[in-house]
Amino acid sequence: MSTPTATGEGAHQPPAPSRTATGRRRPGRLGWSPTRGDLPAALFFIAPALLGLVVFFLVPMIRGVYLSFTEYNILGDPTWIGTENYEAIARDPLFWNALGVTGQYVVINIVLQTLLALGIALLMQRIAKSTLIRGMLLLPYLMANVIAALLWFWLLDYQIGIVNHVLETLGGSRVAFFGSEEWAIPTQALINTWRHMGYTALLIFAGLQVIPKQLYEAASLDGSNAVQTFFRITLPLLRPVLVLVLVVTVIGSFQVFDTVAVTTQGGPINASRVMQYYIFQKAFTESQFGYGSALAVILFLILVLVAFVQMKFLRGNESDLG
C-alpha cells in the first residue's frame, strides 16, 4: 500500500541525474529541443500511458471533485449543493477522528519502517552480500496486502492465535492486538512495516550503491570511525533517496485501507477508522458518494501539501554529490 509501484520504479535509477554527462554529449547546447520529425513517434509511445492517465485518473478525479459539491447516492442523479459537504465535514467529529488516527498510523509506520529499512540496507551493503538473502528480504512485499493482513489477523487472534498462546506460555498476558483501542493502530502499522521494510530497504540500498567508494576510503584515512562516517558521509549523500522514500511511503501510509478493511473495519469503536476507510464507509456502505468525494478531495489536498513540504524542506531534488 505505502509504495505505489508506478512511483517506486523510478527509484531504481541513480538519484542524482548526471548533468555533466548529458552536457558532454551535446556540447554547445543548453537544452534539448524536439524536432518536428520526432513528434508522431513520441505521441505514439506516449499514447497508451496518456490514455490510461486520462481515463483512469484525470476524468475520475475531475468527476470526483464535481461530485464533492453534490448530494449523490449513485443510483439517482447528483444534486448540486455547493459547499454543504465541506461545511458538514468541518463539523464531523469522525472526520477529525479519522485525521488523528491516520496521523498516528503514518507516524508509527514511517518512523519504524524508515529506521528498520535503513538498518537493513546498511547490513545488505556490508554483510548480507548473498543474492538469496537479499531476495528473501523482499518476500513479505510479494504477498498481497490482504493476505498479509489476514495472516497476522489469525496469528495475533486473542483467543486462538498462536502469538498470544506463546505470550501466555512465556508468562506474559494475552494482548488484544486488534480488539483494544490502544493496540489496533500500532498493530496494523507493524504489519505494514513488516511487509514493506524489505522493499524500502532495497530502495535505500540502491542509494547506497551510488555513493562513491573513494569518499569512504578518504574518510577512513582521515581516521573517521563508523559512526562518524555514517552521519557525515552516508546519511547526507543518501538524502535524495531518503526523501523520495519518505514522500512515497508517507503518501502511501496516508492511504492505508486494505489492512483495516479486512481486520478491524474501523473498530474498536472508532480507533482504526482511518481516512480511506471512512471515505469508503461513507461512499460505498452508506451510499453518500458526494460526502465521500468531498472527504477524498480533502485527503488529496493534504497529500499534495505533505509532498510539497517534504520536497521543499528536504531538498529532495538536489544532491550533495554534485
Binding site: 486473542y158 486462538i160 494475552r174 480488539g179 473498530g267
Partner: peptide
C-alpha cells in the same frame, strides 16, 4: 462473558 476487545477475530462459534 469475554471482553469485547478479545472477540475481534475468530468467530464466537469457532471459539
Amino acid at each position: 462473558m469475554p471482553q469485547l476487545e478479545t472477540t475481534v477475530g475468530a468467530s464466537m462459534a469457532d471459539t
